[in-house]
Amino acid sequence: MNSLVSTEWLAGELGAPDLKVIDATIFLSGAGRDARAEYEAEHIPGAVFMDLDELVDTANPAPHMLPPEHKFASRMQSLGLGDGNRFVVYDNSPLHSSARAWWMLRAFGAHYVAILDGGLQKWKAEGRPVESGKVHVRHAHFTAFLDREAVAGKEYVSGIVHSAEHELVDARPASRFAGEDKEPRPGVEPGHIPGSRSLPQTDLFNADNSWKRGDDLRAAFFAAGVDLNKPMVTTCGSGVTAAVPLFGAHLLGKEDVKLYDGSWSEWGADPATPKATGPA
């Protein structure tokens, strides 16, 4: 199974006993939308809802930090997601949050994980079926072992600020990167990590919400000044959209990429960390 699958492919695979479809929609807190309610109103047949707002380390003050292994395993098992399954994740969010779910599943050891190209938007635009309500599942067994090499912490990022040997890629909107917009979380300063590149995650998609591919995708990184030959760390507001450029790099065959899980919500709240404003 490829890492990016088409709506046509998924339509043909629906109902396969080893295939599990996951709705990983999440919204910013002030968006006025309820991801779980929207899922229950309509979702791809058989899809379960992965609550990314709940699947976090509640002991950490930064939002969306990876949960402990036992918590991730427990949540996956309760959703009927088990070892040996093939997972297809999608979303219906401007944050393209399925990339976060893809990264989390892979980081915790899942082998067969794909993103649905175009998400629910494209699926519905093509007139494909949806269903409402909750999906009843059988409890599964999911073995979670976190690949700690997939994650960058604040100390690691501090060590590569202004490094000529690494790239730091920020997936937030350019206005937030520049510090022109107030941060949505209290106590977080505006701006960005010094030396990072601004690559808004929306730049990696076509008008129909499908992923850019090949030369078009590579051109988006190039336009942001990103050297794809260097090891990369991706970042954003809280570690969700940081998974978008990470997945984009993956589509280009690049695997030496870490995700800064704390992202700006951690970095910008720490008075001791260096901060920059203005364009990249």
Score class of each variant (00 low, 15 high):
R185I: 14
E180V: 07
H192S: 10
G195I: 14
A207V: 06
R172C: 06
A171P: 01
S198Y: 00
F205R: 07
D181K: 15
G159N: 08
Y156L: 10
G187E: 07
W211Y: 08
V188H: 02
H162V: 01
E165M: 05
L199E: 10
L217N: 08
D216R: 01
S163V: 02
F177S: 13
E180G: 11
E167R: 02
D208G: 05
L217G: 08
F177Y: 11
L199M: 05
W211D: 09
R185L: 15
H162K: 10
G195V: 15
E167I: 01
P194Q: 12
I193M: 11
G195E: 14
S158M: 13
N206K: 06
A219H: 05
D203C: 07
S210T: 13
S196F: 05
K212V: 09
A174L: 08
I193Y: 06
I193W: 05
L199V: 09
W211S: 07
W211A: 05
G191I: 02
N206S: 13
L168E: 04
A174D: 06
V188M: 05
R218V: 03
S198D: 09
E189P: 01
E165G: 06
P184Q: 11
E167W: 05
A219W: 10
G159I: 07
F177W: 03
H192L: 06
V157S: 01
G191T: 05
L217A: 06
D203Y: 00
K182M: 12
I160P: 00
A174C: 09
P200D: 13
R185N: 05
A178H: 11
N209W: 09
A164G: 14
D181P: 07
V161H: 10
R213Q: 12
V157T: 12
F205H: 10
D181T: 07
F177M: 13
P173A: 12
S210M: 12
G159L: 04
L204P: 02
R213M: 14
A219N: 07
L168S: 02
G191K: 11
R185Y: 14
A207W: 13
G179M: 15
L204S: 09
H166N: 07
E180K: 14
P190Q: 09
N209K: 13
E167Q: 04
D215Y: 03
G179Y: 03
